[in-house]
Amino acid sequence: MTAASPAGPQPAVAAPHLTLVPALHPPLRGPAAVLVDPTTPPPRPPHRPGPRPAADGGPARRPDLLGPAWSVRAGLPDPRAAGRLLLTTVLEALAGRRPMGQVQRLTAPGVHAALLAGRRPAWCSHGAGPLLLGPVSVCEPVDGVAEISAVARRAGRAHAVAARLEGNHGVWRCTALSIG
């Protein structure tokens, strides 16, 4: 026996469907599958200008000399070891046990500038207890990208740390960093 709805018949609602939308952030090189509302238009692709002409009016520069050279996973080292090195180096630099310049080779310019100009977490910069980093978890959403996370402990308290690593010229570079 089925019960009738007291409000009467329900209006027909369009069922969600799977639509391919263009990637919003590099190095996603293809469309990403996202479940979207059928009435919402897809986002516009980001503007990506081509190579600039040479200053003397000659032919355009080779595109491989412009910008970063994304690396595929097969040409990159283990992301877990690179992530542990990055997180340990950043936490020790924020604690004042290492010069911040040592972080520069592991991070993108924007991340390094933010670390230099940003506020240091109090739990990281104050206190004499050791900074302990737990096991590093790795997720590789696309080829050449690794997202890592770990739990850092100090003085009996746990804090989350996470980073996004992108393969660039055969090495991992941190392009986003979050310290909780």
Rank of each mutant, 00 (worst) to 15 (best):
M1G: 15
T2Y: 13
A4C: 12
A4M: 12
A4H: 11
A7V: 14
P9T: 12
P11T: 07
A12K: 12
V13E: 12
V13N: 09
V13T: 12
V13F: 11
A15Q: 13
P16F: 08
L18P: 02
L18N: 10
L18M: 12
L20M: 12
V21F: 00
P22Q: 03
R29V: 02
G30K: 00
G30C: 03
P31Q: 05
A32S: 09
A33K: 03
V34S: 02
V34T: 04
P38K: 05
P38W: 06
P41D: 06
P45I: 00
P46C: 05
P46E: 02
H47I: 14
G50K: 09
P51S: 09
P51C: 03
R52N: 15
P53A: 11
A54W: 10
A55S: 15
G58L: 09
P59W: 12
P59L: 13
P59E: 14
R62L: 15
R62Y: 14
P63G: 08
P63V: 08
L65P: 10
L65C: 12
L65Q: 14
L66D: 14
P68D: 09
A69D: 10
A69M: 11
S71N: 04
S71K: 01
V72R: 14
R73Y: 08
A74K: 08
G75C: 12
P77D: 04
P79H: 02
R80N: 08
A81C: 07
A82T: 07
G83Y: 03
G83C: 02
L85T: 14
L85W: 07
T89Q: 03
V90G: 03
A93T: 08
A93V: 04
G96L: 05
R97W: 07
M100I: 15
R105S: 13
L106Q: 00
L106V: 00
L106K: 00
A108P: 02
G110K: 07
H112A: 11
H112V: 03
A113T: 07
A114W: 03
A114Y: 02
L116Q: 10
R119C: 09
C124N: 06
C124W: 08
C124K: 06
S125V: 14
S125G: 10
H126T: 14
H126K: 11
G127R: 02
G127V: 02
A128E: 15
A128M: 13
P130T: 07
L131N: 04
L131H: 05
L132K: 09
L133G: 05
L133P: 06
L133I: 10
G134L: 06
G134M: 04
V136W: 06
S137H: 15
C139Y: 15
P141L: 01
P141N: 02
V142H: 00
V145D: 05
V145M: 09
A146N: 04
I148E: 03
V151Q: 08
V151A: 11
R153H: 12
A155E: 13
R157W: 07
H159D: 02
A160F: 07
A162V: 09
A163W: 02
A163E: 04
R164C: 05
L165N: 07
L165P: 04
E166Y: 02
G167I: 01
N168V: 15
N168D: 15
N168C: 15
V171F: 12
W172L: 01
W172M: 02
A176M: 10
A176S: 13
I179Q: 03
G180R: 11
